[in-house]
């Protein structure tokens, strides 16, 4: 029997989706119904569109939890971890879920929500035109996609690390992020105050832009590193729980 095969990933995906179908169904319905609801009550398809992006981002927390949940739950943990699936195949499935299937599903559900809310709209909203515009200015698409991958890979790590209390783990990470952000803002404010002290005009601040290739590299490196860490945790945690 060969270890780490594509067939193994497909078999695991089939098993996972079938046994966890309720969780995924909830996620898909959230991706469709919340933007649709907003589109209908605001009578504005743009709100539906904006909400679909927001649900897509917040759905990351649900998705990473769904993937790791059978390995954490008391009743399913033993059966899940004795299933003849290698860590590599499991991670292969997780990557497929995070990088391809989730963005694709979110996009289809968002488009569907916008389309379904169109008859209730006051104004006109050209979804295809909007998407086309953003596709031309592909920084937006790329930015959202990379942002989602960073959030997803981060929450995957939290889910893999947290033994029991997932909420506490999220709270700790939230506090760390807020503390970090506050520190950055404070440093930024100090810079501005100093500028003020020297009677410098804020508008005179020169933003040093990094080369585009370096920006792309950094943004690709962050999720890649996080997924790499997730894989290592998966290998270690799977046998340590």
């Amino acid at each position: 029997m060969k270890n780490n095969t594509l067939c193994g990933i497909v078999n695991y995906a089939r098993y996972h989706y079938t046994t966890q179908y309720k969780l995924y169904l909830t996620l898909v319905l959230q991706l469709l119904l919340i933007p649709l609801f907003f589109g209908i009550i605001t009578r504005d398809a743009e709100s539906a569109y904006a909400m679909s992006v927001a649900v897509y981002i917040f759905g990351c927390f649900g998705l990473s939890r769904n993937m790791v949940l059978p390995m954490r739950e008391r009743g399913t943990k033993i059966m899940e971890m004795t299933l003849p699936v290698t860590s590599c195949e499991r991670m292969g499935f997780m990557l497929l879920n995070c990088i391809v299937l989730y963005p694709l599903t979110a996009f289809v559900m968002g488009a569907l929500a916008v389309t379904l809310s169109t008859p209730f709209n006051h104004g006109e909203f050209d979804l295809l035109g909007q998407i086309g515009e953003m596709a031309v200015d592909n920084y937006f698409f790329y930015g959202i996609y990379i942002f989602i991958q960073i959030v997803l890979s981060g929450t995957l790590i939290i889910n893999l690390l947290a033994r029991r209390n997932l909420i506490v783990s999220y709270l700790i990470s939230f506090v760390v992020v807020v503390a970090f952000a506050t520190l950055v803002i404070r440093l930024g404010l100090e810079v501005l105050i100093r500028f003020d002290e020297y009677n410098e005009n804020i508008e005179n601040i020169v933003f040093v832009s990094i080369p585009q290739w370096l920006g792309i590299l950094i943004y690709v490196l962050i999720p890649t590193t996080m997924y790499g860490v997730s894989y290592l945790l998966l290998r270690k945690r799977q046998v340590k729980w």
Binding site: N3, T76, I78
Partner: peptide
């Protein structure tokens, strides 16, 4: 080592399971 050939030869029925 979680080798497939080992795990596919083994099944555990826990006392409590979902």
């Amino acid at each position: 080592m979680r080798r497939k050939e080992t795990l596919s030869e083994l099944i555990i029925i826990p006392e409590e399971f979902d």
